[in-house]
Design a protein around this nucleic acid. Structure first.
Length: 469
RNA sequence: GCUCCGGUGGUGUAGCCCGGCCAAUCAUACGGGACUCUCGAUCCCGUGACCCGGGUUCAAAUCCCGGCCGGAGCACCA
């Protein structure tokens, strides 16, 4: 990073808490905090919550961000709530008005758009400062209705990029704010609020999405007027995950209300909550985002990369259990005695063993039954059987000769099963699981030949959440 | 339309600023083999990329110009 001195770096992540943190937020948290850490710097979490109407903050979401930061090992050194610092913004606004760099504009949106598009100053632009100050105080006092007046920053009405021409710094919104109630009617826009805060907080480097590229051009005017130095900015492109469609936070909210998703932590959603619920390791998420780098080109990446990262961490410590989806009951004929089968909890890590009864009535998945019917298979750790028609099977010895191959399948004794529901991104899968998983509540296990899953809850039945293959 | 910004194997990334050590890094994916009482893991081996066209230069993925393709912004949203 340019101009980064060890110990003197201040970075921030500045979300609007209008919903739960998503993968996109995670990128912001991870990348900013990691760079700050790399330079022994400071990491600030700032809530840019200055629009109580269009992007209305969600009260619970403030804490969600705090929790998710903590979980991602990105605990902020400082937490700032923009909506609680309104008076400070007002102060800077007054200074700008006094200096003649900001003015109250009473054009309608449409009127101003016309001026902006043609590059002509609007009639309010060159009014005297005293009048603007008076109008400003009236705005604050509730004299104007919404839309009747805004405070604009003077830039350059002939700037080649129309987006930077005299942009709005404050507007009137008669709507109570989840955090500060109805104390204010004049709210700063992101561009203004963020410009002031970055300076006040001493932010040295900004890493953000390129959708905010124009912000810099706008904000630089304010910095120039105050004689401040603008932080170093690095932008990243849009991120698209193959497995998730385009989902805006508000879309997701609606779908949750309609019952399409069970909640913000539905495994099908790209929220941090969902990934936590699925049992992902924060370290894997971090590596995943860091591997994307901070290039300005848009990335379109598969979750498989994340799965690979996560697998590296959990494979060595996830206990192995049998989960039978689409169970089929098999009666084994000619089985001599009931024996206790000991299976290792992990094939290479020493985690002890689990026990299953070697009974003559077992369950296997119908997938296996259908592909191996008429053939000999080995019930892993137990014995060999030949699968026959209509759920029968014949005992075929104990020799582990079937080693070399694919015909080793998992199974469960009838007397030791529990109902199990797995919540996957594609929907719910029901099946049977060995009762030994009761030792693994709230841990990630591997259901052999299926996938890694987190055991969420066990009462009469088992609830598991799909992690990844 | 206007203003910006990008374009390295299937995907992501390093290298580009300060041209040569790049017949291009790493990861993932994919193919093959070994091992394994999981379709997981591990170990080998392999496939596979500098958008196109000009220019500058002894030398270009790296610099310049044009084209094509992609993205973002053009809100009293963040």
């Amino acid at each position: 990073m340019p101009n980064a001195e060890k110990g003197n770096v201040v970075m921030r992540f500045a979300p609007n808490p209008n919903g739960p943190p998503t993968l996109g937020s995670m990128r912001g948290i991870v990348v900013n905090s990691e760079y700050a850490r790399m330079y022994d710097g400071k990491f600030i979490l700032r809530f840019d919550d200055t629009d109580p109407r269009t992007k209305r903050p969600l009260l619970e979401a403030y804490d969600w961000y705090l929790e998710d930061c903590k979980w991602l090992d990105a605990n902020p050194d400082t937490v700032v709530y923009a909506s609680k610092r309104m008076d400070m913004y007002y102060g800077y606004a007054r200074k700008l008005i006094e200096m003649g760099y900001a003015y109250v504009c009473k054009c309608t949106r449409e009127e101003f758009k016309a001026y902006r598009d043609s590059g002509i100053p609007c009639p309010h632009r060159d009014g005297n400062k005293e009048k603007s100050m008076e109008d400003w105080e009236r705005m604050l006092g509730g004299f104007y209705r919404e839309g009747e007046a805004v405070l604009r920053i003077k830039t350059d009405m002939s700037h080649k990029d129309p987006a930077v021409r005299d942009w709005v710094a404050f507007r009137i919104i008669f709507s109570d704010h989840p955090l500060v109630g109805d104390r204010y009617v004049v709210y700063p826009t992101l561009d203004f609020e963020s410009a002031i805060e970055d300076h006040v907080l001493g932010v040295t480097h900004i890493l953000r999405g390129k959708d905010l590229a124009d912000s810099e051009k706008r904000q630089r005017y304010v910095y120039r007027y105050f004689g401040w130095e603008y932080p170093v900015v690095k932008l990243w492109g849009r991120i698209k995950i193959h497995e998730f469609g385009k989902l805006s936070t508000s879309d997701i909210g609606k779908k949750i209300e309609r019952g399409v998703y069970s909640g913000w932590d539905d495994p099908a959603l790209p929220t941090v909550m969902a990934f936590r619920r699925r049992g992902f390791e924060p370290e894997a998420l971090k590596k995943f985002f860091l591997s994307l780098g901070v290039g300005e080109n848009d990335v379109s990446v598969s979750l498989k990369n994340l799965y690979a990262e996560n697998r590296k961490i959990i494979d060595g410590k996830a206990g192995r259990y049998f989960f039978i989806w689409n169970p089929v009951k098999i009666v084994i004929e000619g089985l001599k005695e009931v024996e206790i089968v000991k299976l290792p909890l992990h094939p290479s890590t020493d985690m002890g063993t689990r026990k299953l009864r070697g009974e003559s009535v077992v369950y296997i998945t119908s997938d296996d039954y259908e592909t191996f019917i008429g053939k000999e298979v080995r019930l892993k750790g137990f014995c060999n059987i030949r699968l026959e028609e209509s759920g029968r099977a014949v005992y075929a010895g104990n020799q582990v000769e079937a080693k070399r191959g694919r015909n080793i399948i998992h199974w469960l004794p009838e007397s030791q099963t529990m109902q199990c529901t797995v919540f996957t991104p594609e929907g719910v899968i029901d099946g049977l699981v060995e009762e030994n998983v009761k030792d693994a509540v709230n841990r990630v296990v591997q259901f052999e030949r299926y996938a890694f899953c987190r055991i969420e809850e066990i009462d009469d039945a088992v609830r598991a959440v799909y992690t990844h293959p």
